[in-house]
Design a protein around this nucleic acid. Structure first.
Lengths: 200, 200
DNA sequence: GGCTCTCTTGACCGAACGGTCAACTGGCGC
DNA sequence: GCGCCAGTTGACCGTTCGGTCAAGAGAGCC
């Protein structure tokens, strides 16, 4: 039936959902196939192995994330910085409303579970994180040029710090049952403490 | 042969090592038994299910962590704050020298992988994190009373922020191949930015 | 010496796992 | 109208998974 051209995409989107609601290890290829209404042979027509599915899911989330980060606007760098915090909060709020609770960061979850298990996936995740961090860094450098960063705050280190905080805070929300708005709030706090007094 | 009384401990310690070097899903009960030189029947004599092993490993790490945090001394709260950053860095450095790279936080790894999969384990991890955070909070409150915290910095929020940062930074080091000393350095930066100028 | 109780052993189980394959099917280019 | 090929199907494979169990063996107590 060499038909529907959306099979691969359906597999990836379904997997993204299943991986968020559970974990890589607890989601089987059979689970994915059943949820996507695809037979296993078709699955292995598109993906050489289960690990390649994880990579495709990472790519899906990377596209969505970068698009959303780029949409963070504002007249000042400080506003844009808070804008990315809102973007992260918005993504998490979306997951929260879909799954009924904070289910973690798609990148962070896979990174924690698999970066000591699968080297090529770890590389894949590392470059996804790098792109994310670079997005942060651009705004941090703008903030530095606008002179709103506190004395001694290095923009690159701040970008890294923001990413670390994002990951950690989402993980704590996942295990502690906190809400996505809490995540965003903590992120805003962290940004504020790095800005000069009165800077917005 | 109702003999050796250290079997259970040997299982837990071996599992702790295996779980750090890989992941919960990729370590089988058979793997653990082989590495600990224990037959599977013995394993299931001590643990009702594989998940209970994870709990025991969490307890092992919790004891080690709290002991190490309590050892963080110093005349001022600021020094003790930097002391806990060193403690975290020291633990990670230990793992790094054992496994040849940063392998993540034992709590964070399990939390990311399993807190959407196993509710009782998630609770277990949540209370471990809570105890950890309380350890941070005690020192943060001391810092507040000593007046070394920047204006507007809430000690409880700072403790939470420190924990989030710790988790996120370790995860980034794991996936990015950074060293444990980098982790500690970022933590020191975060502490410094929350302290008044000149406070040590 | 024998009883008891904890611990140990190795064989065993059904289910689920990731992955393979030969056969088939429909749409598209010629 | 026909050949080609990406896509589809369902049966199938060997392995590994978490977990069970009946039988035994040593230490401690009386």
């Amino acid at each position: 039936m060499g038909r529907s051209r959306d099979t691969r995409e359906r597999i990836v989107r379904t997997s993204a959902r299943l991986l968020l609601s559970r974990s890589y290890g607890s989601v089987s290829v059979d689970d994915v196939c059943a949820a996507a209404d695809v037979r296993k042979g078709s699955f292995y027509h598109f993906f050489p192995a289960k690990a390649d599915l994880a990579k495709a899911v990472v790519d899906l989330h990377t596209d969505a994330l970068l698009e959303r980060l780029a949409a963070a606007s504002g007249d000042t760098a400080a506003q844009r910085l808070h804008g990315v915090a809102d973007a992260v909060g918005g993504i998490q709020a979306g997951f929260e409303s879909t799954f009924g609770r904070v289910v973690g960061c798609p990148f962070g979850n896979l990174a924690a579970e698999l970066s000591t298990v699968d080297d090529t996936l770890r590389d894949h995740l590392a470059s996804a994180f790098a792109r994310w961090e670079r997005g942060f860094a651009v705004i941090c450098h703008q903030a530095a040029h606008e002179g709103v960063l506190r004395e001694g705050v290095d923009p690159d280190r701040l970008a890294h710090s923001l990413l670390a905080h994002t990951q950690g805070r989402i993980l704590l929300a996942k295990v502690g049952g906190h809400s996505a708005t809490d995540v965003a709030a903590t992120l805003h706090d962290l940004i504020d403490v790095h800005l000069r007094e009165g800077a917005v």
